[in-house]
């Protein structure tokens, strides 16, 4: 198990290094931030000075190594626009995105997993077919379109919920959060639902496929032959078996949900990292873009690692193979 852990850490480190190079080169290729940063009427001298000051005159690999050196000291640089350290900037926006993504994932699980299990348990029922249609919609409807529809319906037409923003927050351990107050909820629920739809569809399909397979297995027949209640057959035998793929997907999707909250945050004007990054791209605020993308890579790698380890906890057969 320990050897397995070390091996995974090394793999993860390689991925992070490779991705950081890609990100750096990619962002460099997008455009020159100097043009955006300074007054077009500025003299060539001011321009050259600035270029030198930011080190844009040096070769790319040198810029990269300076950047890595700084990062290793915990310094991702300063935002060109806001003139504050980018890490502070990102971390100040992170709680909002985190809360939104977590809310979306929980909503997706709480709704998606039971519906999926039901659809797998009674595959021929009308309700199951309706559920599957729903999951296809959740899958395929574009997030921004559903988002706009939600705003139109619940905010503009019905006036039930606010159309955007985060509203007032309350602090928990110094972190501003929405879910502690009913008002906070009223701002959170629409964007969370919007962001949840895709994963809801995914979890429904996953839970259904797993349940369908488990229901025809010998161990379910045997459990029934022992006189177990159907609730126990499903709640113990089936659930434990389908939990492995579900935990994997939950973990992996949590990463992408965080990263792709961009669309939802833009529609609902949610003050999270996604909105920050869109704004930064508009003005070519390189340090923010690079730091954000590298943090996303780190996040994915860490989540993958955790999921892999959890996998072993959940599936004893894998645990046995690894320690062998």
């Amino acid at each position: 198990m320990f050897g397995f852990f070390i091996q995974r850490i090394v793999q993860a480190a390689i991925v992070v290094v490779a991705m950081s190079i890609l990100v750096f080169v990619g962002v460099y290729a997008i455009g020159n931030p100097i043009d955006v940063m300074i007054d077009p009427a500025a003299t060539q001298e001011i321009r050259d000075n600035l270029i030198r000051q930011y080190g844009f005159d040096r070769p790319l690999y040198e810029q990269y190594f300076v950047f890595v050196g700084n990062v290793l000291q915990g310094d991702f640089g300063q935002s060109f626009i806001y003139r504050v350290p980018v890490l502070d900037l990102i971390f100040s926006r992170l709680p909002a995105t985190f809360e939104l993504a977590l809310g979306a994932m929980l909503l997706a699980s709480v709704v998606g997993i039971p519906l999926g299990i039901w659809a797998g348990y009674r595959p021929h029922a009308f309700s199951s077919k309706a559920i599957m249609t729903l999951s296809i919609l959740g899958f395929s409807l574009p997030t921004f379109w559903v988002g706009l529809l939600l705003v139109m319906t619940f905010a503009v037409q019905l006036h039930w919920l606010p159309s955007g923003g985060r509203g007032p927050t309350s602090d928990l351990l110094g972190v501003p959060l929405s879910f502690l107050t009913p008002t906070g909820w009223s701002y959170l629920i629409l964007p969370a639902f919007n962001l949840a739809l895709f994963n809801m569809g995914l979890l429904i399909r996953l839970a259904r496929a797993g349940t369908l397979e488990a229901m025809s297995s010998d161990y379910v027949r045997f459990a029934r032959a022992q006189g177990l209640k159907e609730s126990k057959v499903v709640g113990l035998h089936v659930l434990k078996n389908i939990s492995i793929p579900i935990v994997t997907v939950f973990g992996l999707e949590f990463g992408s949900t965080l990263a792709f909250a961009v669309v939802t945050e833009t529609i609902f004007n949610w003050p999270g990292v996604g909105k920050l990054i869109i704004d930064s791209i508009m003005v070519l605020d390189r340090p923010v873009m690079v730091a954000y993308l590298i943090l996303v890579v780190l996040l994915f790698v860490i989540i993958n690692l955790v999921v892999d380890l959890l996998y072993g906890v959940l599936d004893p057969r894998i645990r046995a193979r690894r320690s062998a």
């Binding site: 161990y219 027949r221 459990a223 022992q226 209640k229 078996n241 004893p316």
Partner: peptide, 18 residues
């Protein structure tokens, strides 16, 4: 016939409690 991801004890206890 035995559930691969549940301990023997867990499966037997469930069968008894049924």
């Amino acid at each position: 016939t035995l559930n691969p991801v549940l301990k023997i004890g867990t499966q037997m206890v469930a069968a008894i409690k049924a």
